[in-house]
Write a protein that binds this DNA or RNA. Sequence first.
DNA 1: ACGGCTACTACA
DNA 2: TTGTAGTAG
Length: 682
Amino acid sequence: MPVARPESSDSRVIAHVDMDCFYVQVEQRKQPELRGHPTAVVQYNAWKGGGLIAVSYEARSFGVKRSMRGDEAKSVCPEIQLVRVPVARGKADLSIYRNAGSEVVAILSRKGRCERASIDEVYLDLTDAAEKMLSETPPESLEVIDDEVIKSHVLGISAEPSDVRQAVREWICRSNADRRDKLLACGAFIVAELRMQVLKETQFSCSAGIAHNKMLAKLASGMNKPAQQTVVPFVSIKSLLEPLPIRKMKQLGGKLGCSLQDDLGVNTVGDLLQFSEGRLQERYGINTGTWLWNIARGINGDEVESRVLPKSHGTGKTFPGLNCLKTIAAIERWLSKFSEELAERLEVDLEQNKRIAQTLTLHASAHKATESQSQKKFPSKSCPLRYGTTKILEDALNLFQAGLREYLSSSSKAYGNGCSGWGITNLSLSASKIVDIPSGTCSIMKYFHTQDQSCSSTKEFNDKEIFEAATLSTSGSESYLMKHLQEPQTECHEDGTKMNTLMQTHLEDESRMFEDKACAQTNFSREISSLSTPVKKNEPQLDSVGEDAVIKDAAGGNRSRDQKGKALKEKQGTSSILQFFQTKNCFQEPKEESVNDMQETTESSCSVPSESGGIRSLHRGADQSRVDCIYKIDEIDPNVVDELPREIQEEVRAWLRPQKRANNTMRRGSSITHYFSPNKNL
DNA sequence: ACGGCTACTACA
DNA sequence: TTGTAGTAG
């Protein structure tokens, strides 16, 4: 449900930029011979020529519509060129469009706050830029005005068609105009400029709306397409909205809009004006009621959020009708592909944007197989996200099992895994709760994060530990590196349960110690501690440097590191120390024990049944960390450090150096050891 | 149950 | 916090 937000100002300059049939343009750039021809992008081709997801304007003029099948489009427009969406791992892969969208965002974000609203839509807050222009080079002072500005559509301008251009020119340059209009005029200049830049640098055309808020800008961007822009002056708002069918408004295209029509007889936005705020609140709740009252008047306080990156990554597929998945084996096959794609995208996000995702969620829809399940929805399930394809797969499978168990629980009969009882028609996996890695971690992060895929031993709970690719906590009180790049350890505790109880007391000690001895830290650990989110009182800031850490190659260390290093170097072009860390390649298929091992726990905030029928605790705060990959620190040839970029050489040397720890008895067996000890609860 | 895939927000 | 529902392109 939409919610009302106070309006910070009624003279902001907000733009909504909408790419024209974006997927088509992306394909036309790739294949220029398609330009000018009726073209559509279609995904999958098996059934009736696949479904259209983007249609060029040439094709639209033939009556081709989105959501037609490919065959249908061909019959309406025989010369249409159908371009298939790329397929990877047996499913549609939209990454080329996502990446193209990023190109556009990079340009549009130059002039003000930029919010990526979808793969092909962006909101801009150009208030500051417009005010600057108005004070420095107001439109009335300009001698030449770009044609792209003159071609703007300005709502409410009355002129004969032959005079429109002149009327727009005058509106833009009026020296006695309302300040709000002048700001919008400046916005029109800025947006025209941006759109030209986008065209020049990406070859993509776009349309835009320029108004005083997001809602109006969005409305306007769709009014004149393709490759045009539309301005909504303040005085035109009323006449724009009054006759507008209610369902044209964003957020009112679905059930809410339907309810307004059916229950209140509201067919246009103007019709809404007759209802008091109280009445609307009565019917739709405080928030939505106020929101409705506001939008009827063109009031919308939504801020343009500064966000150019997505808040989540997802991948999934539908399996309609007889294609539904009926066995765990089939589920696993697909989850495996999804895990791969997700891990890949997360990896790119980490590398490019220094962000990590914290939550893995599995969504599914199920076929109704029995009456008892017919109404029941397959529940979605989440758990902490661990990086690496195999870990994601392992967790996803557990989430699925948990969901399935719940889904089937109501049915009178107990269904086995066979081909009985259920069929999955939609399955997807997503990664969310993405947070930035604090700056300063990046230098070293780059060199270690890539170990994820290769680092997937499931004997992890019994191993000594040093690195963890990425794991997470729900507490948010520890640093990223603490969770991911663990210090060498001095001890290995096998009993996670005991450790947990010990931890509580040790944490406080550790916290005090940290404050006292912060300067004794190595560079490496200093970086670690600098990463920490601001320390709250009583929240431990952990720090520990293992003196005699044993770092071993979890793969067994049979090959010399030089061999392994060379092999990887050629393949990946990375420095050898990194390869050393990467080459443990302790790639193992998940073993059942890894799940069956799980002990029952009573304190978990979220428990899912494990395959063995035990309970697997998912959110355990600080105890999330596991470590899989182990190295012998003295196996690292100090010379390879020279191959690292200078900015991290010191960090690594300090870390490799035997620690001088005069007064460090507390460190041995200190809380970090417990903190990162094997945790059988997870 | 053939409009597939993705992603966001609000809410309980 | 996790999970659901609604919305949109």
